[in-house]
């Protein structure tokens, strides 16, 4: 149970950074934290005490494997996370070029 609660806390920590931080880079870090929390949750879901990595070396092995499916999912979601983080950082760079600040309270040309 403890690892799951830790994941949730990490998730909420990231959400806190996104909602309350004013610096764009910190928001992106918060976003990465949330993403890692979910990935970690996936890894914990597949985890099993005392089991080995799911590599079949010979038929008829009797040892327990950890669940390999969440690991495959985590790989996919890490790649997606890479793409989104890269795009966010690209946004941050272009925004800095236009506004000369990372402070979101000063980046307000749209209203309503």
């Amino acid at each position: 149970m403890v690892p799951f609660i830790a994941c949730l806390l990490l998730f909420l920590l990231g959400l806190y950074a996104i909602v309350l931080k004013r610096n764009i880079i910190k928001i992106i870090i918060g976003f990465s934290l949330m993403e890692y929390a979910v990935n970690l949750l996936f890894a914990f879901i597949g985890f099993k005490q005392g089991a080995i990595a799911p590599i079949i070396t010979r038929l008829g092995m009797t040892q327990d494997f950890v669940d390999p499916l969440p690991q495959a999912l985590v790989l996919t979601s890490i790649v997606i996370g890479l793409a989104t983080t890269a795009l966010m950082l690209a946004f941050a760079m272009r925004i800095y070029e236009k506004y000369h600040t990372f402070d979101i309270t000063e980046i307000r040309r749209l209203r309503g």
Binding site: F31, M88, F91, Y99, I107, R108, R109, L110
Partner: peptide, 30 residues
């Protein structure tokens, strides 16, 4: 342009929080 980047970033942050919540629920469903 400046406004487009601003709204794009805003949209992206909100959209990604939504996506992560969906991913979180997919993990719990699994």
């Amino acid at each position: 342009r400046a406004e487009e980047l601003e709204s794009g970033f805003k949209y992206m942050v909100m959209g990604e929080v939504g996506s992560l919540l969906i991913l979180l629920s997919v993990a719990m469903l699994y």
